[in-house]
Design a binder for these strands. Structure first.
Lengths: 140, 140
DNA sequence: ATGAATGCAAAAACTTTGCATGACG
DNA sequence: CGTCATGCAAAGTTTTTGCATTCAT
């Protein structure tokens, strides 16, 4: 949809093959939450010869430029998604691994209130619900 | 306060030196949120000769036994704290690194509602607010 | 005594970095 | 053309695992 080279220029980044392609991968990805490894794999599968190190470097730059957002889900690896300006939180299904985005104004409001009450302001926040389908009976 | 060997037995874990000591470290720690490395360092400084691998193994077992809770803060390493039965979330100061615990019933309630609305039930959740002192002016 | 727990070191998973080559403006 | 980006491989972090030894019951 958007013009990638243009976005890169606006972000003050030199327009290079790898950067454009990585941005495209993130946009086209059906599951919009990709790890660095997944981005790299997607590139290779598309015949793009980009090194994993470059993927990490570029993703880090994109994050710094607010082009993408990085999330640290449980399990030690990060995932990235295109930042469309909208903030939202995530629900991760522990059985299927699928990621659902959601946003709740009231939660946001309460968070601000809590930080404020302690004399702080929020720089960032991280809310992830780990869930399972209601029907599944995992008796304990 | 509590009898550590007793707690271990109740959790179905064999009472061993390292396990008792690690439980003590977690209880005595002034900052109650320790990483595996920190637990290990604390042990060594106390003259306890425990391997780092054992610390990881024991912490994993303790977590499985609900004796402790593991948190994955941003930055790639986990921290652990004694689970006292109370659930709470965390606020991490980005300038001092200090961790503040809080709990808000309304947020909990809304979270359940959101999961429910999508056909899920919550297995676990993770809410961390990254904050900075209100007065501090970090111009960008 | 016997099976589980430990320590050490090696390995694994994820991410960063150094350096020579190649590409962008 | 000069500088910055890239690729490769090596190094860094954090956590896990294999195996012989030690310990709890």
């Amino acid at each position: 949809m958007t013009d990638k080279p243009e976005e890169l220029k606006k972000a003050g980044l030199k327009v290079t093959g790898p950067r454009v392609k990585i941005l495209q991968m993130l946009e086209e990805a059906s599951d919009r939450h990709l790890s660095a490894e997944e981005v790299h794999k997607a590139l290779v599968e598309n015949g793009e010869d980009v090194g994993l190190a470059t993927v990490y470097r570029v993703l880090t730059q994109f994050e710094a430029a607010d082009l993408i957002v990085r999330h640290n889900f449980d399990g030690g690896h990060s995932v990235y998604e295109l930042s469309d300006g909208d903030h939202h939180d995530h629900m991760v299904c522990t059985e299927t691994g699928s990621v659902i985005e959601f946003f709740d104004e009231e939660i946001e409001r309460i968070q601000k209130k809590i930080a404020d009450r302690h004399g702080y302001e929020i720089v960032a926040h991280n809310l992830v619900l780990y869930v399972k389908p209601k029907s599944t009976d995992a008796s304990h």
